[in-house]
Amino acid sequence: MADIQAASPQYPLDGMVAGSALVQITPAAPASRLALRARPDAIAPLSKALAVKLPQEPKTSAQGTAAKTKGRRALWLGPDEWLVIDESGADLMAACQGAGGTFSAVDVSNRNTAIIVSGPAAEAVISAGCPQDLSLKAFAVGACARTLLGKTEVVLLREEADVFRVECWRSFSAYAFAFLAEALRDPMV
């Protein structure tokens, strides 16, 4: 067993880059991700275990409450569904193990990958393929939603006014990236 060479990861968007003067499109860093489903009785215990308050308002997200979970986000996806993302590589499955209440936690760290779209034209570029109203009035900083980008499903999170995180399943990420790169060619954006 000693001679086992530990396998090294290969990320789906490795080396991809696109951008213009107004927008940058880059693969997000690898992250731990949890698909979390819970009955109401588990919301408080899970929030405590994960040190991030699971939001209960549609289209909202929450950031970690503890110092070391600042970079952790919980995204409301449905009335009993959250996507928890942690870029520090924390073991989220372990974190919620044994939390009280009835829930389902599934590791989807490698199912999803993410693209960061940033810059003054970020909203316009995503609007090339997303039918939702992404104006700050309708989609504030911190807002998130599962929706569509062109012909693929994505989870959109507005991290800052000019920064969006586009989460998608890994085999759709090349399409999503190419779509955004094509959309940014329009100088109008």
Partner: peptide
Amino acid sequence: HGRGKLFDPARKT
């Protein structure tokens, strides 16, 4: 946009 490589997502393992 839906033409060429963006006509349909090509999913790869």
